[in-house]
């Protein structure tokens, strides 16, 4: 599902060259649940952004869901992103639309036939346990509920791969545990998951394959 070969990413800040990723190589198979762990600033978010082609590597090759990401033409980027679901630390819900409309928005943007929209949205809401809060605006939701809504929005397009960038970063431990349980359920249904987190305990708790990044280098790859 994901292949990285000798990936480097450097940024130039004036005359200074900052290395965000250095010679990172790994593979993640279809159906795997992998944790990308590392402290803040270790390059986790940069790596995820390379995967959905929000950034281009300075060097190296990246393949995601059958797409040669590094050679992808700008006009083909939407196709890659349709195969990927994304969840971020902040839920990125649209404040003027309720939970139901936030999820509908994705399907309408992607041109899903009208008759398919309502059942798929209800199914996604049910999967994250948010059916009863469908009419609530984001501001009326708790942080945990917002993150669930964000997960429902990522799942509704039935992605082959789910990238989760610190999805529990803003949550207290109990709520974070619920989100992790949800991610496990999603993974059990066959979705490949790459979860980025700075919490070492969380990576241990999940007992899944863990890639450890530090200062842009892949330090460990442990099962």
């Amino acid at each position: 599902m994901i292949q990285l070969q000798h990936v480097f990413k450097e940024y130039r800040v004036g005359p200074v060259k900052v290395t965000a990723l250095a010679d990172v190589s790994f593979e993640i198979d279809k159906g795997e649940f992998t944790v990308l762990a590392g402290p803040s600033g270790s390059g986790k978010t940069t790596l995820l952004r390379l995967l959905y082609r929000d950034e281009v590597p300075t060097e190296g090759e990246i393949r995601v869901a059958g797409y040669e990401v590094t050679r992808l033409r700008r006009s083909n980027i939407p196709q890659l992103r349709r195969a990927i679901g994304m969840v971020f630390q902040d839920a990125k819900l649209l404040p003027g639309r309720n939970v139901y409309e936030n999820i509908v928005f994705v399907l309408r943007v992607l041109g899903t036939p009208r008759r398919e929209i309502a059942p798929r949205v209800m199914q996604a809401l049910k999967a994250v346990g948010l059916s009863a809060r469908a009419q609530a605006l984001p501001a009326q939701l708790s942080l945990g509920e917002q993150q669930r809504a964000s997960l429902a929005r990522a799942l509704v397009k039935e992605p082959a791969l789910l990238l989760a960038d610190e999805p529990t970063g803003n949550l207290d431990e109990g709520i974070a545990e619920e989100i992790l349980d949800l991610l496990r359920e999603i993974w059990n249904r066959g979705t490949t998951i790459l979860l980025a987190t700075h919490r070492a305990t969380l990576a241990d708790q999940l007992k899944r394959r863990t890639l450890v990044l530090e200062r842009g280098r892949l330090l460990k790859d442990k099962d």
Partner: peptide, 16 residues
């Protein structure tokens, strides 16, 4: 801005 960010992230074409 937020709508456009979400649109791009979920794979909407520039035309849409």
């Amino acid at each position: 801005r937020q709508e456009m960010e979400i649109m791009r992230l979920v794979g909407a074409s520039e035309m849409v």
